[in-house]
Structure formats: C-alpha cells, structure tokens
Design a protein around this nucleic acid. Sequence first.
DNA 1: CTTCATGCAAATAGTTTGCATTCTT
DNA 2: AAGAATGCAAACTATTTGCATGAAG
Lengths: 154, 154
Amino acid sequence: MAPFERELSALRAHLKRSRLKQTAQRETVLKAFLEGPRYATMDELVASVQKRDRKLGFSTIYRSLKLFVECGLAKEHHFLYGKTCFEHSGQGRPHDYLVCKNCGKVEEFSSPLVQAVQEKVSREMDFKLQEHRLELYGICSSCQGPKETRPEED
Amino acid sequence: MAPFERELSALRAHLKRSRLKQTAQRETVLKAFLEGPRYATMDELVASVQKRDRKLGFSTIYRSLKLFVECGLAKEHHFLYGKTCFEHSGQGRPHDYLVCKNCGKVEEFSSPLVQAVQEKVSREMDFKLQEHRLELYGICSSCQGPKETRPEED
DNA sequence: CTTCATGCAAATAGTTTGCATTCTT
DNA sequence: AAGAATGCAAACTATTTGCATGAAG
C-alpha cells in the first residue's frame, strides 16, 4: 500500500462529503505533514511544505490544516502559548500529554484515573463534559541527565 | 483592615525585593484587578482600570499583571485560545478547572485523583514534574436548563 | 541625580480575510 | 459554466517594545 494511502482516502472522502475540491496543494500539505514528526508547529509545517512546492502559500497551509482537523487527521494544540502545533491524530491514541520545558518534547499517556476524575467531577458538578485537556509540564528523563547528554537548549 | 491590604503589602514587598518602584499606577491596577471577578480577560481589566484612571495605558496594565503573576497575586490562563485571562490567585486554591463552552464561566475543583495521576505518570515516565494544566470543557448546569433560564449566548 | 516607570506610538507575531485569478467538477 | 481554491497582500488581534518624558528612591 502506498504511503499515506489511508489518510489520503480519508481526506478525499471528507472533501467529497463536504462538496469541496480535491487539489494538488491539499495533498501536498497532507503528505508533508504526515512525513514529518508527530508534532509540528506552523512554521515547521510551512518549511516542509515549501520544500515540496515553493509556491504553496501559508494561507493555503493554514486552511488545509483546519480541514485536516475537521476530518480527524490532525489535532491542534497550544502547549506553548502563542505557538499552535499540530499532532498526527490516529484513532486509539492517548489524549494526555507530558511536555518537556527544556527540550519541548511531547510524550503521550493515558491513564484510567483520568477517566475516573472526569466522571466524578462532571457528576458532582452537574457538568456535561465535552472534552478535556491534561498537560503535565516538567523535565523529561533525557534532559535530567548530565549536561553533556542533554538535547540542545534554546 | 483596609481592603486588599494583604495583597498591596505582597506587591510592595515584591517591588522592594526586586528593587523596583512603588507607583500609584501599579496599585490602581491591582485594586481594579482584585475588586473585579475572579477571572478577567485583558480587555475587561483595561476597562475597569481605566474607570479609575483614564490615562493609565494598556502597556502599563500588561506590565503590571506580569508583575502580579511573578509575586503570586495572579495566575495566567489561556482557556480560550487567544484570550489571556487572569485569576485572583490565593494560597490554597484548587488548580483544576471546568470551563463552560456556552457561557464561559469557570469553576474550580481539585481532586486527590489528579494528584495520583500525576505521581503515577511522572514516576513511570521518569519525568520531573513542575506544573500541570487540567481543564474540562463542556456545558455547565445552568446552561443545560431550559432555554429561558440560560445566560445570554455570544 | 540616578534609575526606573509611564504613556504613547510603532513594531511584532500569529493568524485570518478579501479579492482577482486559476483550477475542479 | 459554476463553484471553489489559490496566492498574494492587506487586515486583524493580542501583545511587546522603543523612546522621550516624568516620577520614585
């Protein structure tokens, strides 16, 4: 199976469903997004998209990512305020995050306890829960090691 | 005891400690902040500060709030992406939030389970935890009622 | 009298939008 | 041919900064 076949089909299906158009640009953006790291900021995305097509403008990239979010191929985050980042969003992935404040690396986790907290709180406070955000910030294990082995700081 | 005496002293102490200056503006901003609701966005703060002093500019307000955050009198949030909001931050307050997506109201809670999740995850993933953010989004109880009783939507 | 803060305007950052042109269907 | 997408520049929002003037230590 060709790379990203599944995601391309998902995109095409979404476009057809919404009576939108299938364009080369949208597929270029999707491929650049998917072949990059699981988490990428807008500027990183712009850079890698433009490596494939210099003329592809940033508005198209913004608009495409919004589309990907709509059809579940991407998930938008604001871990560091002011810098949107997009995650490759698969089906059964965890929805909770550890963010390293030293190197910026994001790790995912999920814990049954989180589910329990949500249920308890929303029941007690009579709140109809729709979504949640759980982000733990700190220093990841590789950044805790001796200075020599740390990823570069910025 | 005069209103906000405790907070004014905390601010003055912080200023002295950092060899910064005690100014009328800073105290005006602090009073306007504290006499308002527990959560306020920047524009709301600007409005209520300028009710007390028309000439007090928004850069001073931004700079003051940053100061309050530094000395623990305020806590910065980004519940709705793109709209910073500041909380009156007391000592023993909970650190977890329920945000109503209909009326924007924020309720606080804390659960021992959250603590447990943090400990478990940071131990398992060898992560040195510094802070966390837990936000539950949904519809609060008053917004679930019959249409007539709902707070205005925007 | 030195250092810091203020107030204003301009700069910046990130993102969105308007519109003429071009591509899909 | 009709409707939608692109690419560009301009608009926008939220925030930060530079700098001359004024106030605090």
